[in-house]
Each structure stands twice: as structure tokens, then as C-alpha cells.
Design a protein around this nucleic acid. Structure first.
Lengths: 212, 212
DNA sequence: GCAAAAGTGTTTAATATACACCCATGA
DNA sequence: TCATGGGTGTATATTAAACACTTTTGC
């Protein structure tokens, strides 16, 4: 689960309170139930562990080496989720487990092969954000272009030119310019925009493809 | 499993001789063993059903809706494979099951949700072939540029300009020009090339990225 | 000699890149 | 009044697209 705050791309980790790897940080997750669609399992676990519903969720990859779990052969169908931290509060599970957001560059040694899973997810996010408009899932519904640009800069890990970035994204015609501006900023307030999914879907059907 | 002949992109199907869906065509596959890495399962099944080894194999997606299989809740971790039909002969499994190559546009109603799985695989192939050099897996080791172009035309399902295509692919410097030409063709023989994986890997490390 | 595909350059349009200043606002 | 980010345009370089003829070879 990825979230974005003013500074960093962050990942939600949960501290294990059972063996194996007791005390270690790990990705949130749990076991599937027979008769439950696997995406439902992912959503259920997500809600149980964070209280979040209706957020962006996508299957990542399935990990099935026999020694991933020291107890027995466990197959993990990994999903990743995107959430905007400004508008969703994570309410950790009731069962006393410690949950925390870690900056993507400050992630410790995790339980099992979770560092590898996380790396795979970050890699996917990095690749996908340039050709599918999923970045908006990490921002508040109404955002300034600066926020969008910083999001891309953080995830792609390189600087972008302000004028070129604005030109390109606005020319796509998939942002709706709102009659609102930022509040509570210590400088000139920026105009707010929101992602226009209808426009995006329509244009996509007509052959348009997002690219940044 | 995808293969390419002179005419078409083809898919290997196997006719079921057990319930459910007895007599229907289906994607090749089988059950995983506890203690076996899932990619190993895929490779083992591939070899058992076709005799093929050492071919390109990549995890596709995991399908886990509870009603996919009328008998019980089965989770399928789908892989797709690419093979060049000119240099590999498919030797169907010994157990009397019928196996055949179908043109991608002539695939019948398959067992289970296999049409959906196949569609997902085709979609992945179509998307991936433009930015990862996996197309070469479908061609003989030595090939003419015409063959490569036709491959792209078939998979992307649109015509490409001959001069522009050649310019672009040759400029990448990832093909090695061989001192050989085609034989047994009823017209002027074309120069043969092979994919230079070393060069590709080196250039990739230096920041190059394939795109067609 | 003819059918079939190989091989080859140039022009034009579109897109990407590089780059700097004035403006509005809150502290 | 100063610090901070908002907002804007142009020139240049790069890349993509469109387009047609001559050459080679086998039959």
C-alpha cells in the first residue's frame, strides 16, 4: 500500500507479533478463504488492517517459491494499493498490531521475501504511472499542478521542467480546471484541478493514450 | 503458448478428454505440487504437454474467482510462453490427448474461463512487444528484416512502413548483421540478422530503452 | 522477361527540450 | 519588503511520418 504525503512516497508496514519474524515489519496481508475471489481477499485484508475501502487496488504478481515461508509452502498473490493520505485516515487494526508509514527509501529489512515484493510493486508503479493515469489516486481529489508534478518527480525520481510538464498534461484535456484555489498556503495560491475520468475514458475509446 | 508460422500468430490448445468440458479445447496446464516453485510447475507442464524446454516463459496473471471451475475453487496462476515454430517441433503428450495450433482469430469457445485468460495473454503480448524485445523469441535465430516486420504487423495488427521500420530497428544497434542470406526463396534473398542480446543488455544498462 | 521482394533517402510535420522572467500572496 | 511558488512563450533539436523507385533473383 502506497501513500503520498507532502514529502515522500510512503509504504504501509505492519509489525508482526507472531513467529516467524516476530517483531519484524512486514507488508499487510493474510490468508485467502476458499470460495472467496482473490481480489476480495485483498480488499478484505486491506479493510481489516487499515479501515480503508474503495481504494485503487491492482494485482501485482504471484510469488510461490517453496522456501518463502519457513513454515510451509505458501503462495502469495500480491496486490498493491494506492491511497491519498490527505483524505483517508488509516485506522490500524484493533488487534494491537503496530502499523506505520515508511518512506520508500527508509524501509527496513522486512519479514519473508517482502522486500522483494515491495521492490516489484515500486517497479510496477514507476513503470505504470507514465502510461496509465493512476497517479491521481495518490492525490486529493482537488489538486494543484505543482502537486501533480512533484508526485511524478518523486516516483520517477527525476526533475521535470515546470513549463513543459504543464503544457503536456493540460494539452491532454483530461484535467478539469476548477473555480477554486488553494487555501492556507504561505505564497500565491495555485488553481485547483481534478482528474476528469469521463473525458479520459471517452478519449481512450477514441484512440488516445496517456503518456507522461 | 504462442507460436508464429508464415501466416499467423497461433496458440497451442489441447482437447480435454475428461469432465468437465470433455471434448472442449483448453489451454495446456495442470496442478502444482507442494514444494515446487510455481514457475517450475509451469515449465514442467509445458514440457510434459509439448516436449519443449528452455523457451521464453513469463507469469501472466492469477485468476481466482470461486466459480471458474465447476468442481471446486481452483486458483490458476497463468503463464504465457513464446516459441518459434520453425526451430521447435511440438511433440504432444503421450497420453493420447489431441493438441493443435489455432490462429489467434480462430480460437473456439474454450473450457473454463480460458478465453479470458487467452485474451489477457494476447493483450500482454501486444503491449509488451513494443517496449521489450521479446518478439525475437517467436522468430528463428537467424531472420530477415521482413520477417521481423511481419511479426510486428501481425501482433500489433497494423501495417508498418518498410523504410521507417528498418531505419528504426537498425539504428538501435541491437541486431547483428550476418554474412548469410536467405535460401530457398522464389525471389531475391534477404540478408539475415540475429538479435544481439549482449549488445542489448549493455545498452540497457547505459540507459537505452527499446521501443518500436 | 516477369514476378516478387530487397534495399535505399529526403522532405515535412510533430513532438520534445531547453530556458527566464514577472506576478500574486502571505508573513 | 521579502520569500515563495504561480504562471507563462519561444526557439531549437529530435523524432516520426509520408512517400517511390531501382536492383536482384528464381522461375
Amino acid at each position: 500500500m502506497f501513500g503520498l504525503d507532502e514529502k515522500d512516497l510512503r509504504v504501509l508496514l505492519i509489525q508482526r507479533n507472531n513467529e516467524p519474524f516476530e517483531g519484524r515489519w512486514a507488508l499487510p496481508g493474510g490468508f485467502a478463504k476458499v470460495g472467496e475471489a482473490i481480489e476480495e481477499t485483498a480488499r478484505r485484508e486491506l479493510t481489516e488492517e487499515t479501515g480503508l475501502k474503495n481504494i485503487y487496488l491492482e494485482q501485482l504478481y504471484t510469488f510461490g517459491e517453496p522456501d518463502r515461508d519457513p513454515r510451509e509452502h505458501v503462495i502469495t498473490i500480491a496486490y498493491y494499493a494506492l491511497v491519498n493520505l490527505a483524505e483517508h485516515t488509516v485506522r490500524p487494526a484493533t488487534d494491537a498490531r503496530n502499523a506505520a508509514w515508511f518512506g520508500i527509501d527508509d524501509v527496513p529489512d522486512l519479514a519473508f521475501d517482502h522486500n522483494r515484493i515491495l521492490y516489484t510493486a515500486y517497479h510496477r508503479l514507476k513503470g505504470k504511472i507514465s502510461y496509465v493515469p493512476i497517479g491521481f489516486e495518490l492525490l486529493p481529489r482537488k489538486f494543484a499542478l505543482r502537486q501533480l508534478q512533484q508526485l511524478y518527480e518523486k516516483i520517477l525520481d527525476r526533475k521535470l521542467d515546470k513549463r513543459n510538464f504543464r503544457k503536456k498534461i493540460l494539452k491532454m484535456d483530461i484535467l478539469r480546471e476548477l473555480d477554486e484555489i488553494e487555501t492556507d498556503v504561505a505564497h500565491r495560491a495555485a488553481r485547483l484541478y481534478c482528474f476528469d475520468k469521463q473525458a479520459y475514458d471517452r478519449k481512450t475509446q477514441e484512440g488516445f493514450s496517456f503518456e507522461l
